[in-house]
Design a protein around this nucleic acid. Sequence first.
DNA 1: CTGAAAGCGCTAACAC
DNA 2: GTGTTAGCGCTTTCAG
Lengths: 393, 393
Amino acid sequence: MPYFVFFLPLLCKHGYTLVNIRLQKPESVADAGVTFRTEVKIKVTTTDIAKLAGVSQSTVSRVLNEAPIRISPARKRKILALAEKLNYTPNRSARTLKMGKHQVIAVMAYDITDAFAVECISMMESYLAEKQYRAEWISCAYARRQKVEPKRMLAELAQSVDGMIVIEADRALKDADLLKFWASTNIPMVTVIRRIPGDMISSVTLDDEAGTTRLVEHLVELGHKRIAFCYHRYKFSGDGLSCHPTAARRHEVFKRLIKQHGLGEDPDLQIAVDDNPKDGYEAGRMLISGANLPTAIIAFKDLIAMGLIKACYDHGINIPGNMSIASFDNIRIAEITSPALTTVAANYAEIARLSIDELIRQIENAAEKPFKASHYVSEPELIIRESTMPRQQ
Amino acid sequence: MPYFVFFLPLLCKHGYTLVNIRLQKPESVADAGVTFRTEVKIKVTTTDIAKLAGVSQSTVSRVLNEAPIRISPARKRKILALAEKLNYTPNRSARTLKMGKHQVIAVMAYDITDAFAVECISMMESYLAEKQYRAEWISCAYARRQKVEPKRMLAELAQSVDGMIVIEADRALKDADLLKFWASTNIPMVTVIRRIPGDMISSVTLDDEAGTTRLVEHLVELGHKRIAFCYHRYKFSGDGLSCHPTAARRHEVFKRLIKQHGLGEDPDLQIAVDDNPKDGYEAGRMLISGANLPTAIIAFKDLIAMGLIKACYDHGINIPGNMSIASFDNIRIAEITSPALTTVAANYAEIARLSIDELIRQIENAAEKPFKASHYVSEPELIIRESTMPRQQ
DNA sequence: CTGAAAGCGCTAACAC
DNA sequence: GTGTTAGCGCTTTCAG
């Protein structure tokens, strides 16, 4: 039974009115100790505790915030006990209003249910828990679809968080929008997987140059000569770029390396795909039925590779026997595909740590000037699993 | 350039102090219209607008909230224009503090990066956007690991949201904890994929009876006689149950149906697995190498089935030729596995709609009494894809 | 129609 | 050590 019931008489004496209590038969939950749905809604405040303890409200506040002031032990004990019994929880809005701090950061992604974002979120979540911050996870895709103006959305967001991390920034928002927003709020911000030109916003990016190189070298060493690449179709639309921020870069590096290795740049082996596995499947079908069958295919992300795997499976092409497949990201299912994917793994833990540390640094040194943007680059790791092997003669 | 710059003189006249403006070379972002990082941080308030417009603060509030009072058109225009120019955004904390409403709900799952939760979140997110509510997505797994007491966590949460949805409730929190919390805060609440005994908390559940039946019937019709089942290993630990809430039920129904169809209940064909694909893989290996090879395997969720598929793949067992695989959930990758999974699909859109509608109903009719819990059951749909086919002789 | 004023719950500067 | 007091920005009476 909620503890406050014991205090009802006292509370009533202090002006509370008992609105209504409706009893209900114990039923099977009796053992949970709950037998009624009460209509009295009491949010205990420091003032309540103060009245009950017979001290001033500020004394209560001091005790509960462990202020660096000695409070007489007896009162302290009394207040603490009351807070415990009444199940006191500070009112966040009031505290925020007073302090101007939320202890909350926003993490915005294009789509928080995208597999890459999920991996980032997973790591950030566990890291944030240690840091005494909470996070708000925000997709901008849906908001946009609802015709909410990005600026509006961001402005509102800025009212409820101390800072924000934007994953795949130029996919989430146009650089210019982001910059304008940032300039108008000056809210601490870190972009992940994208560095905004101008050196005013800190960033954590992936070394796609190194990652792509490692992957291509791997395939070249395995003897592959016809290597295909599924890159992200670049779309122009009214509300901005919709290209995977690093996909284009990976493609660039790939083209350069292929040339360097004298493997020729066969345009038939480079296919633009939309960002979904089905399109990967279609790309796979095209590559398989083309005149110039590759012996290895790289996809710009794991989910596309899953489509490729399925296309090969459906057409009786053995992986890795007759076709090697590799990609980028290392989302969690990459190791459970059949066969398991060789992939350029992002170091999600590091990305999370770097971006959050940098953001919190900015938040807590808000006064620090001149502001200096920091840029971190995370090294990806090539994870060789089962989907790549030496080219069969 | 942020609009407030134009108002600086006026603002200064009203007591604002220009702390510092540091200029920076235009660089490449000049076109974004941002050329400096300002150190003046102005959060525009209704009071600011009031001063600039020469009216009282309450008039501004009335205009911005479209209060049902006629305001002289000239003033209205002026205020609106100023708000627009200054990029005014209401301070959420202040509004919340005053109104006692957040327009935010919490969605708590055991792990928000779990594939099932992701599908729920995806649908809830798009549905919520229409409803003018925001959501906070909360995992309790990490919090728990950080030794934050569930009660504490919930109590704090209750301070920043108007209601909450708990996905797979008994996995997230012990029933008793949830009930105690609920009783102590009386916060509107809906559980998803779990109905709390006692009829005091509304719920949206899946018809696992029907779903399991459809799946088993499907396999029986295909002629399968040795059907294996991977069920969720039930774990007892200090802080509660850790069994997939519906997994046990699916297993129960399966066992009953197998008996009904006279297929015998071979204990070797029923394997307990932990909730991860690797354990599914191990289970697959055991089943394959056992004396009594099944011709079909059901997993309690898609991710486990992926492990099974991989086990078959690695051991040269063709799916669906020599082995049919099926499972539950229909997470988004289920259609892109090789082969695509036959699965009992949860209707995520419906789950989202029902749970959110019910929650908002409770929030907005808070005064409504007597409170009446509502219980919705969502019908799953058997989606037959490529991983099941008639038993080969 | 509009302004003045109260107060949501909290923190912190200021008195005693 | 402790109480008093002043707001944080907003909504909403209550007077005019």
